[in-house]
Design a protein around this nucleic acid. Structure first.
Length: 885
RNA sequence: GGGCGGUUAGCUCAGUAGGUCAGAGCGCUGGUCUCACAUACCAGAGGUCGGAGGUUCAACUCCUCCACCGCCUACCA
């Protein structure tokens, strides 16, 4: 007999064994020179500061499934890995480290600080890469990139310069989102809005002329120090006479014009709005429309500046209190109402954003967005599930210019130089030695760096070597698929599409698969503050990477978030163990001869073999279809169902007698060959989901050369489909099920001997007779009589399954009354069903309008039920006869 | 304010293009250590598919309204 493998599956050992093997053998390596059909994915580069969380785990599991599937299916595959320098996030981490030493980045100076960040990156930055390896990710690590690499930095400069030359990058004074903590500008996307319970303050602004005043409502009284107007709606009757007059800004004494602007909602507050163009985006717009002065009163650190007069030096929050107090004393605070509204916070540090007037660099996105919309509209890119396309369009159609400059140090420094002589700007991809305008060598580079997402936007082509025309670019671009979460659809995906179209003249990827969010079991986002984070590495530690990956795939139904808990992974750990033991069984029952021979699909086969091969074929077809459509859960489910409930529960049990007590050695070996072949195919189809265990089992079967990764992904053979065999087995299963059910209902222990008489309709007699042994084995029957003409045995319990009468002979006394009741209950149930079916058939509309196929199906169901009901009636009658004597 | 999504067995969820789709896993109940597996095997209970209308011969599946929950987004201070 065959090889022995351990009784329970130990994931840890095999994970440690196979990942290094794959790397050593170079099985993840991509080579464009080999040609063939290209299939490529670029990884969404995790932040260097990051460590693996559930989102990464899901994201990369799905990518790995796609990649391994295509690789086995004969594609020339590239999975391009790398990390993102994550400007603000990384700078924050290192600054925190410095703070622990009592230092700030300014103590070090720019150059030293950047050195320090690089040093940090070398030490801690690779963490997530190791974690991805634990998961089994089959990236081509030899190509790993970092967004601050020399090559990628060159791409960044090149893109910046070209966009600038095309007039798509400009610098200007605009109101932007300012984080006083990070001390930098942020794009709109980096601002998170949260509800705040706050107050609405009503403040009286006295008129310059005569008595009276105008009351404005504001949530931010401190900004009044920067007010340069008061606005009302032009349609508002209440204020019509005041428009054109002036009022006095309290506490400051400045005269403010009262203007009319349609933006003002008459119904909100008092209908009068104070205008602070330098600290509110809407006021800014109004300011431009009316040519108002823009007066900054809050500085980079969130404190009031000199313009705030008496309040200068105060923090924003402090100042609010003081202003309110001062107004109260002057009797100008009319009232205060509680008010809840949304306030912008810094995505990275949570500080309240200060909208501030500032000189920044912008990308003019509209022309780029137009092309990007077209690419999706025309189907050159497909977003899956399709509903996300709406979000994409909605965002792209209302897109605003993208603020790309950041006032931090860690990142791609903007390739623009100011001439200290003439003030002209030189933008160049190479460091210039002289001013492009006056030729002076006295140049100073822009100190701002670029938004991190600027370099990420280039990722699909910068990682492939752009701006060089590399073989990689030629062969692997456009990439085949992008797998990502919806949260960065706008941040990243949309921008990659814009940049890809602009600089490669072609979309960056064909498909975008948007996966769900992983939540905790109660549906809450996993977050450190909630303490509900499940660490992927702990899951791997406990249940193994394969079980974890399979679980994630099985939960990845399109359009719904995943609620994950350890218990749910456990079930899939059990599945892995099931596979393990099935393999163990196969190995224990393999003859040497079988291992030597290649499997042949030809020849006459007994029912059970035709059946399992047919079922396998269906499973393979389904798995391919589901994977091609990104229905990972369905694909996983199909494999699970087939392996556990068809291969293990029925096939292996069914063939045991012929393995243990074969009538001919050749039959045994033929069966063994099928048993082995089906297992091998399952291993291959399962490999993308569970790479470690499948590799381990693959190698434990003698005669396998090399990695399962080199095996080809099974192609279904349609000639193996056998509907007749499936129908016949279904009937046999029903009969076995009927016997088991009777036994359980009668409370007969599985050990007890059973005698059974089956009375089938004449047409089924041969089939049942032929498979008496199977029925006996699986139904645990000792003596079985199959005879369509047999008379009903007197002392027996009775059931009808698929028109086959099942009589279970009892040795003891049959409680006739009870048995009668049981049959009556069963009959009633059948009758209820029958009634519904009959009503359907009696409905003229149904019979006339429904497709013939459907009507036929209902008719035959009615016949079946009638037959069953009749047989039950006969059984009941017989019992009555027995009782009478 | 706008948009989107969810509401199916005790729990977590499938149900792809209206008619064997009322399903799975876990949990539960009863019975088994049956020579691959107790991380297992066998059997079973359990849902008028959120509510109300409508379309249709036929609706969990399409339409309308309502309720609750969640998300995204926005220029009502």
């Amino acid at each position: 007999m065959g090889t022995q493998i351990p009784k329970t599956f130990d994931p840890k050992k095999i994970e440690q064994k196979w990942y290094p093997y794959w790397e050593r053998e170079g099985l993840f390596k991509a080579n464009p020179e080999k040609g063939g059909r290209a299939y490529s994915i670029v990884i969404p580069p995790p932040n260097v500061t990051g460590s693996l969380h559930m989102g990464h785990a899901l994201n990369n599991t799905l990518q790995d499934i796609c990649i391994r599937y295509r690789r086995m299916d004969g594609f020339n595959v590239l999975w391009m890995p790398g990390t993102d320098h994550a400007g603000i996030a990384t700078q924050n981490v290192v600054e925190k480290q410095l703070a622990a030493e009592g230092l700030t980045r300014h103590d070090l100076g720019r150059e030293e600080f950047i050195k320090r960040v690089w040093k940090w990156k070398e030490i801690y930055g690779g963490q997530i890469i190791h974690q991805l390896k634990r998961l089994g990710a089959s990236c081509d690590w030899s190509r790993e990139r970092f967004t601050m690499d020399e090559g990628l930095s060159r791409a960044v400069r090149e893109v910046f310069v070209r966009l600038y030359m095309d007039g798509l990058i400009y610098k200007g004074d605009y109101i932007i989102n300012w984080c006083p903590r990070c001390s930098t500008a942020l794009s709109d996307l980096e601002v998170e809005h949260q509800e705040h319970a706050s107050h609405l303050y009503y403040v009286q602004y006295p008129l310059s002329q005569g008595s009276g005043g105008i009351t404005v409502a504001t949530t931010r009284p401190e900004t009044m120090l920067g007010d340069t107007a008061v606005a009302v709606n032009p349609e508002d009757e209440r204020y019509r006479e005041l428009v054109g007059l002036q009022c006095i800004l309290p506490l400051v004494g400045r005269a403010l014009p009262i203007i009319a602007d349609p933006y003002v909602e008459p119904g909100f507050g008092t209908g009068a709005l104070k205008i602070t163009p330098a600290h509110d985006p809407n006021d800014f717009e109004i300011g431009i429309r009316h040519g108002l002065e823009k007066l900054r009163v809050i500085d980079e650190t969130g404190r009031m500046n000199q313009e705030a007069g008496a309040f200068a030096g105060l923090d924003r929050e402090e100042c609010r209190k003081e202003v309110v107090e001062a107004l109260k004393q002057k009797g100008l605070l009319v009232k205060v109402e509680p008010y809840t509204h949304k306030v912008g916070h810094c995505q990275r540090c949570g500080t309240v954003i200060e909208p501030t007037l500032s000189k920044q660099w912008f990308v003019k996105v509209e022309p780029l967005a137009k092309e990007a919309i077209r690419a999706v509209r025309e189907g050159r890119i497909r977003i899956i599930p399709g509903k996300w396309e709406n979000d994409y369009f909605a965002w792209m159609e209302n897109i605003r210019d993208w603020c790309i400059s950041r006032q931090i140090w860690w990142g791609h420094r903007i390739p623009a130089w100011y001439c200290l002589e003439c003030g002209a700007l030189t933008v160049a991809s190479q460091d210039p030695s002289a001013c492009s305008s006056c030729g002076s060598p006295a140049l100073e580079q822009e100190s701002d760096v670029l938004d991190t997402w600027f370099s990420s936007a280039l990722w699909p082509f910068s990682t492939l070597g752009w701006p060089e025309r590399t073989r990689e670019l030629e062969f692997y671009y456009p990439t085949s698929l992008l797998v990502t979460g919806f949260d960065i659809l706008t941040f990243w995906v949309a921008r990659m599409i814009m940049m890809g179209l602009k600089f490669m003249g072609e979309v960056p990827f064909r498909h975008v698969y948007i996966h769900a969010l992983v939540r905790d079991i109660e549906g809450r986002k996993m977050s450190k503050s909630l303490g509900n984070v499940i660490d992927p590495l702990e899951v791997i530690e406990q249940y193994g990477a394969d079980a974890f990956r399979f679980a994630l795939a099985a939960f990845a139904a399109q359009g719904r978030d995943i609620k994950l808990s350890m218990e749910r992974v456990e079930g899939y750990r059990n599945f892995m163990n099931k596979l393990w033991n099935a393999a163990r069984f196969v190995l224990m029952n393999l003859d040497q001869e079988v291992l030597g021979e290649p499997f042949s699909f030809e020849g006459n086969r007994p029912l059970v073999e035709r059946w399992i091969l047919s079922r396998l074929t269906r499973t393979l077809t389904e798995v391919r279809e589901h994977l091609d459509a990104y229905r990972f859960n369905e694909a996983a489910g199909a494999i699970y169902q087939f392996l556990w409930h068809e291969y293990c529960d029925w096939f292996l049990e069914w063939i045991k007698p012929s393995l243990y007590r074969p009538s001919h050695p050749s039959e045994k070996q033929r069966t063994q060959a099928v048993m082995l072949e089906v297992l091998l195919q399952v291993l291959k189809v399962l490999h993308p989901f569970a790479p470690f265990i499948t590799e381990e089992i693959w190698h434990s079967i003698p005669g396998r050369d090399g990695s399962i990764m080199n095996a080809s992904f099974p192609l279904p053979r349609p000639e193996l489909l056998d509907q007749k065999a499936e129908a016949e087995v279904q009937l046999l299963q029903a009969v076995v099920g009927g016997i088991r059910n009777l036994r359980a209902e009668m409370g007969i222990p599985p050990g007890a001997q059973l005698n059974v008489v089956l009375i089938p309709p004449a047409g089924l007699e041969a089939l049942l007779k032929e498979h008496q042994e199977m029925i006996c084995t699986l139904g645990r029957v000792k003596d079985l009589l199959v005879d369509s003409k047999a008379s009903r045995p007197p002392m027996a319990v009775y059931s009808v399954s698929e028109t086959v009468e099942i009589h279970l002979l009892l040795h003891g006394v049959l409680e006739l009354e009870k048995e009668q009741e049981r049959l009556i209950r069963e009959k009633e149930e059948i009758e209820r069903e029958l009634e519904a079916v009959r009503a359907k058939l009696a409905n003229q509309g149904f019979v006339q309008k429904a497709p013939a196929q459907v009507v036929e199906r209902v008719r035959s169901k009615a016949l079946d039920l009638e037959r069953k009901s009749r047989k039950l009636a006969e059984g009941i009658q017989r019992l009555k006869d027995v009782v009478r004597g």
